[in-house]
Amino acid sequence: MSWAKHAVGEVQEYLRMLIQVGRGLVTRPIYRHDIVEQFDAIGIGSLTVVLLTGTFTGMVLALQSGMTLDQFGARSVVGRLVSASMVKELGPVLTALMVTGRVGSGIAAELGSMMVTEQISALRALGTDPIRKLVVPRVLAGVIMVPLLTIVGDAVGMIGGGIISSTQLQVASSVYWSSVTDGLFIGDIWMGIIKPFVLGFVLVTIACHVGMRTKGGTQGVGRATTNAVVGGSVAVLAADFFVTKLLIAWLY
């Protein structure tokens, strides 16, 4: 039963951190400089990887669905499939997964090494609450930047799909783009925008939690980094399922 006790303790600590983050968001002191720095690190820093994954995903979606649609002689509606799957599902999830790999690991490694070299204790000794100084800026940046990155990912995905449609599938660009807009309903757009807020929050808070609980030297930092990526990715996919279920009941 010791693992159960351990798991409950871990969840308890995670929730306690969330409460402290909530308090840190609405009361002073707020470390503006760190917030700006994290927006840059998490948002601008992840742009390249999101552009690349978005484009390739859109391209492969067009190739695959083009093949399937051929069986029904419906190649011209390829745009619908690309836009619907990109905006509702692949854009938010793939962006969140890429950010987990890039940012989640970075956060866990950074906070973890600060933990094992006593820099976090030093912060507290110097009168700074590490949650406000380190965690709040990262959570804010994650919650705001992941949705923005998702929108960018969606856009380049649809453009990538368009390039493949016109060069490989011989679907005229005007046909593709009108099909893209036909495929999108207002509910889909809401879903595509609401989801990444949740996913961004989940992945950053897990990385911060894992980082702040690092123990045991360099090895501990390695373990924390792995846990942040594995735990964060699984949590992103699980959260995606539950949020999708909730939003389907709510939006449609």
């Binding site: 600060m114 070299t117 006593e118 820099q119 204790s121 030093a122 912060l123 000794a125």
Partner: peptide, 10 residues
């Protein structure tokens, strides 16, 4: 407080 190894912010 002077921490062991310094604990400077690197």
């Amino acid at each position: 407080m002077v921490f062991q190894e310094g604990a400077l912010f690197d």
